[in-house]
Simulated assay, not measured.
Amino acid sequence: MTRKEIWYWMSGLSSWGNRTIHRLLEEMGSPEAIFAAKKLPISQMQQEEAEQKKKEMGKFMEESAGWERQGIRFLTVEEEEFPARLREIPDSPYFLFLKGTLPPPGPAVAVVGARKCTAYGRAQAEFFGRFLAEQGVSVISGMALGVDASAQKGARRAGGYTCAVLGTGVDVCYPACHRQLYEELSICGGILSEYPMGARPLPYHFPLRNRIISGLSDLVLVVEARKKSGSLITADWALEQGKDVLAIPGRLAELSSEGCNRLIRQGAGIVTEPEDVLQALGLETGTKDQKKGVELPPDEKEVWDCLSFEPKHLEQICQETGWEIRAILLILLRLELKGIIRQVGGNQYRRV
């Protein structure tokens, strides 16, 4: 039995957890000693699961060959390729399943936020994901609904690297509606998990996976968050790991902004423009002139000024600008082709 096979045996013990493994390694000295022990200082349930998994170890070589065909690898903390950032955090994982590639050397930012975000939050997440990728910054997130996936889609649209840390096995696309993003990350980014193949999205998986999201990053940017949310758990992990936390302020009456506003009140860095994130990373941008706005002809600028990140119906745009519907549709089409607005269904339009 090789040491890597023993690590794989441990990865499948759902009743153990990272801290149980850490305690046993401290008490017994090595993975081999843990595997060879007839009786371990753990609960009866944990002991029974360990013995049952030992009987299944013959499947390891067959299973690992199948993973390779899917582009999946099993990495242990003892391998040189294991992410150096994760070695340094409290409660560091001992093993990871990887589909795609690991984050490249260089700056990385975790962009996280509410699953049930506003249109404004979704637009900001996509914008920051794209902006960071354009600056050569890796975007780390969880591929969740709302802010997470929007940030990662923005990074992909800019051709940058983004990595999703899952609360499932890397072979499980969760949520299922993000299949296209999942497939893109499998080829052009990375998908990571400490949970075994086939692991389902159990509620207690996600708070723990958040320490890996922050651990892979230099800082955490929270776009939108409610009072109690996984994003704030990620922020707590970041602070424990000695990382900076930044937040985008939101409207006082907006429930999805309560968490961000509270973080800022507690001392998180406030983000009012993308350069704030680069400054926190100690980087400079070559695209600062972009914040001066897009140069538009007068008719397009009038329509652009009428729009916001919240969807607005075509009839309302006509009423506010005084333009006829055919003229407005032509202007909206030109703005769409420039990539600065988007139709979001039902004759509604918003800024990108």
Rank of each mutant, 00 (worst) to 15 (best):
T20E: 14
T20W: 08
T20Q: 13
I21A: 09
I21Q: 03
H22K: 15
L24Q: 00
L24T: 05
L25Q: 03
L25Y: 03
L25F: 10
E27W: 15
E27D: 15
S30E: 09
S30Q: 13
A33V: 01
F35G: 07
A36E: 12
A36C: 11
A37V: 03
K38H: 06
K39V: 06
K39P: 05
L40H: 03
I42Y: 07
I42G: 04
S43M: 15
M45Y: 15
M45V: 15
Q46L: 10
Q47V: 04
Q47G: 04
Q47I: 03
Q47E: 07
E48S: 12
E49A: 02
E49H: 04
A50G: 10
A50H: 02
A50K: 03
E51D: 09
Q52K: 12
Q52L: 09
K53T: 01
K55L: 04
E56L: 05
E56Y: 08
G58Y: 03
F60S: 05
M61D: 12
M61A: 14
E62G: 12
E62L: 05
E63R: 02
S64L: 11
A65P: 03
A65W: 07
A65I: 00
E68C: 14
R69I: 02
I72N: 04
R73S: 04
R73C: 00
V77N: 04
E80L: 04
E80P: 07
E80D: 00
E80Q: 06
E81F: 07
F82L: 12
F82C: 01
F82V: 00
F82N: 00
A84T: 15
R85D: 14
R85E: 13
L86I: 09
L86P: 03
I89D: 01
S92V: 07
S92K: 08
P93H: 13
P93R: 11
P93T: 13
Y94K: 11
Y94F: 11
Y94M: 11
F95N: 06
F95T: 10
F95W: 08
F97P: 12
F97Q: 05
L98M: 05
L98D: 08
K99T: 10
